[in-house]
Design a protein around this nucleic acid. Structure first.
Lengths: 229, 229
DNA sequence: GCCGGCCGTGACAGAACCGTGACGATTACA
DNA sequence: TGTAATCGTCACGGTTCTGTCACGGCCGGC
């Protein structure tokens, strides 16, 4: 579950700070810019998953930046949430016409912010239609989030599920513990490499006698999922 | 999933335009009329699945048109959403009495509009289009808005009903709390994810011993409705 | 056959996750 | 206008999952 990156563009550092704290607590990566120019540059540079834009800023205004971002190919798909001071309700339509995806009126609670931000991200990321995979009667179906062995359900924990999913979509190739941590646990976590071994063990146990030969140890390297020997 | 047709009746072309864009992005077909007369004609002519009506218009007002549409056989089943300027909250009751299915205050975000429009379509689709669903003696009948277990009625709240309906029409698939909030609550609401858990609980309680195994927890992910396992 | 490194395995404590009852607020209804 | 129903949130507790460790077996090289 790789965390998303959010770019905050606001001239008041105290506001930026508040938002940043709230977002970091909700496990988002945060970038900050204090004016439209640097904001624009950072949007191009870091490709954040979402941009939080203050309406009123010295120099180029938020809405102007919003228009610019929507106009450019590289950033057009980037969801934008506009922040505005209370009592400027009329701007709402103007803001949304500029291409903003949502519009939050100050003052707002951090929780509201996070909730609306989630909603916007949810919409912006269409659920990937993942295909189910089957190998020797072992079937993993992402839609129902189920693993079956010749039709009967297997008990399997969340991490084992992800591990198996990764393996089944990347068969016949050896991965180091480090690579598996990256791919299955998600990059920026600090976890002992030996932990992989433990989950491999648990996965094998879940797979049972029938299928555990599919998860193979590559001594000195890591593990591999393969139907061949 | 053939896309639905929405008729917009508003005298301001900029508003019509904004709404049209939003709806087209959400994959609806859009018809526009700039006054009640042509709106009325188009409603009869094209039989849209829903009508968006501005309250204040020169000549015949939106609410008047709403009443007329509800009075005539051919258009009585047609869901209507009224649009009104802010600060005219009092009209709400009047509007709903006239037969409108929902009531949106300007300014509104396209997102909000689409969400509420979906909600209205979901619950107000003319009888006959929505089939009743039955699974293991548990039957949900949209026409009578009733849930029965082997013939005897079940007590079930509005939200639980919608939740169950969604589940029964989307079986064998796991949904995250976030997705359920989108689908059942409507995308623009700001509600804690754990709230889903509580309603799942209430739904299970309503279903009773007999059927609660159908609502399954997918640990680490969300919930699923399934007859298997 | 000996040895060092590598890996399987069981145990464990802390964290994460989910079910559940309760509560205040709002809404619907009589 | 009062009463009931429903909603969203919270806090508590049980259960499951996770990451780590330690022990010991296994393997390969010499």
């Amino acid at each position: 579950m790789s965390s998303k990156t959010v770019l905050i563009v606001d001239d008041e550092s105290s506001i930026r700070e508040m938002i940043a704290v709230a977002l970091e607590m909700a496990d988002y990566r945060v970038l900050e810019a204090e004016n439209a120019q640097t904001g624009h540059a950072m949007a191009l540079d870091h490709k954040p998953d979402l941009v939080l834009l203050d309406w009123m800023m010295p120099g180029t205004s938020g809405i102007e930046l919003a228009r610019r971002l929507k106009r450019e190919e590289a950033t057009a798909e980037m969801p934008i949430i506009l922040l505005t001071a209370k009592g400027e309700e009329d701007n709402k339509i103007q803001g949304l016409e500029a291409g903003a995806d949502d519009y939050i009126t100050k003052p707002f609670s951090p929780r509201e912010l996070v909730a609306r931000l989630k909603a916007v991200l949810r919409r912006a990321t269409p659920a990937g239609v993942e295909e189910s995979v089957e190998v020797e009667g072992l079937k993993l179906d992402p839609a129902s989030h189920r693993v079956t062995s010749h039709g009967s359900a297997l008990e399997i924990g969340p991490t084992e599920y992800r591990l198996l999913q990764f393996f089944m979509t990347h068969q016949e190739r050896a991965y180091t513990r480090s690579q598996l941590l990256d791919q299955v646990w998600g990059g920026n976590v600090y976890v002992e490499e030996r932990t992989v071994d433990v989950h491999i063990r648990r996965l094998r146990k879940s797979l049972g006698e029938t299928h555990q030969h599919l998860v193979q140890t590559v001594r000195g390297t890591g593990y591999r999922f393969s139907t061949r020997e």
